[in-house]
Amino acid sequence: MKYAIKYILTAVCIALAVTVSAQGKMTKKSAIQHITGEPFVHYYATIDGVPFYLGDWLTGSVTMKSGETYDGLQLRYDCFKDDLIYQNNLTNSVIIIDKKSIAQFTLTHPHQGKVETFKPVVNKNLNEQNGRYFAIILEDSISVIKKCEALEKKYGNVNLTLKKTGEFVHKTHRYTWNGKDLKAVPRYRRLLLRQYPEYKDALRKFFFHNHIRMKNDDDVRLLYQEINRLMGE
């Protein structure tokens, strides 16, 4: 009986080992991907705070212009330099992904679980070839997009104890995008009604029934969905 148990245990161990090695092989093959980029150079520690969106590494996916999508990546969006940074655990490297090759990427909020989609938007007025990353709030004939920025605010006097020269200040701006021009989304209802005088009454009713707050992304999405609908009629 003792020997039988021993044999069974040995057989189970061998089976487990084989399964684990097979899984290892599969993981290796699935890891083949074609993200291109250059090494990320760390910021000097003279500026307080972090320039990255939501501060930490976030789980997300990247869709390349060639059509490939890579999920479950560790990503950081550098709002200061407008770069997408990727941590490749297999090669222990941190890479700035080529903006030219990205069609879109998503980031998942660590606590809320909300997924935000970012796309490079080329604005001819800014004279940028590869565009800048904007978070997509609504995609329609008039889209609503959000720019997350990190600016360096210099201290008047250098903090001698910490040797810091300034800090990163995060700001977000919302814009409408019709494929050509970027326009800031008005902060107040009356300014928005002025932009669309022909739908004034309809929009007033919409504000009243849906309790729209212009600071809320979801509300702004609803509002511009209605504007797109009204324009399409």
């Binding site: 890891a31 991907q33 074609h34 993200i35 291109t36 250059e38 490749n88 090669t91």
Partner: peptide, 10 residues
Amino acid sequence: NKPRHLGNIS
């Protein structure tokens, strides 16, 4: 003249 990465090779 900068290092380049292509997927899992550099």
